[in-house]
């Protein structure tokens, strides 16, 4: 079975994420994010760069309301999700896949169960408890694991895998949600340079193949420029650069990160 077998047919509306004037204040009067607006659609991949502590993680977590934004609007494929709570919020979160720096797998569960965790928003708790996932989900999971080269690890426990393999499982789990947008929070920061490149390739490839807009928080500017089609630079809670990677100059980097000694 191939991945194509379950990608949605043509003609469906384009998947997208749109942020409008997003603001987050942890303490009133001290915004971490001020007035962030951008839109990502189709299968484009966006890298978000910026110094540590500038609110990149907060931004990503505001999108699926793991952190509650102070004001502003978030649209996932046109649906406004800012006001949602309870069951509606859960259903909106199914449309937002997330990949984490520390993988966040359930260590004592098998690779297969971790991948199937991506379906927990769709499957009832009782079915999940008895491990009676719908056959369609199982097929999808097998196909996905094959396509990322982990078909031999299906029954292995997640804690027996290497960092790169774990991140692949994390990505597969997010794709299982059939998300309308894929968020990756420093997906390569815990990995060696070679594995980082492989993980970036995989993310961009899956995003294009399933036509899911991809947003990646990343420290490594070179990786960002190499793999993404658009770079957003954030400094002190404001977007200071938004454009193609080729046009990102040292002048821009100075504005984003401050100082210049580190640029040789």
């Amino acid at each position: 079975m191939t991945i194509e077998a379950y990608t949605k047919p043509d003609g469906q509306p384009e998947r997208s994420l749109r942020l409008e004037h997003l603001v987050k204040e942890y303490t009133p009067g001290k915004p971490v994010l001020r007035d962030i607006s951008f839109e990502v659609r189709g299968h484009s991949s966006v890298a978000i760069i910026g110094p540590s502590g500038t609110g990149k993680s907060t931004l990503i977590r505001c999108v699926n309301k793991l952190i509650r934004p102070t004001s502003g609007k978030i649209y996932v494929s046109g649906e406004e999700i800012t006001r949602l709570s309870g069951r509606e919020l859960r259903h909106a979160r199914r449309k937002i896949g997330m990949v984490f720096q520390e993988f966040n797998l359930v260590e004592r569960l098998s690779v297969m169960e971790n991948v199937l965790c991506g379906r927990l928003g769709y499957v009832s708790s009782l079915r999940a408890w008895w491990r009676k996932y719908p056959p369609g989900d199982i097929n999808k999971a097998f196909a996905l694991l094959e396509s990322i080269g982990l078909e031999d690890f299906v029954q292995q426990r997640a804690d027996s895998l290497s960092g790169g393999q774990r991140q692949r499982v994390g990505i597969a789990r997010a794709i299982m949600q059939e998300p309308h947008v894929l968020l990756a929070d420093e997906p390569t920061s815990s990995l060696d340079p070679k594995t980082s490149v492989e993980i970036m390739e995989l993310l961009v490839h899956l995003s294009a193949e399933h036509r899911i807009p991809l947003i990646i928080n990343i420290h490594d500017v070179e990786l960002a420029k190499r793999f993404t089609s658009r770079v957003i630079g954030i400094s002190q809670g404001v977007i200071v650069y938004d454009g193609p990677p080729a046009e990102l100059s040292n002048e821009h980097l100075k504005v984003i990160y401050g100082g210049e000694d580190w640029l040789r």
Binding site: M98, E107, L120, V123
Partner: peptide, 28 residues
């Protein structure tokens, strides 16, 4: 570990599923 819990919350899992698949395997 709060990491897996965050991941399952982000996947839209109801809290019973989060308990069964996130907490229970860790504390069993």
């Amino acid at each position: 570990d709060p990491g897996p819990i965050e991941a399952l919350t982000a996947a839209g899992a109801p809290w019973t599923s989060i308990f069964l698949k996130g907490f229970w395997p860790q504390v069993a």
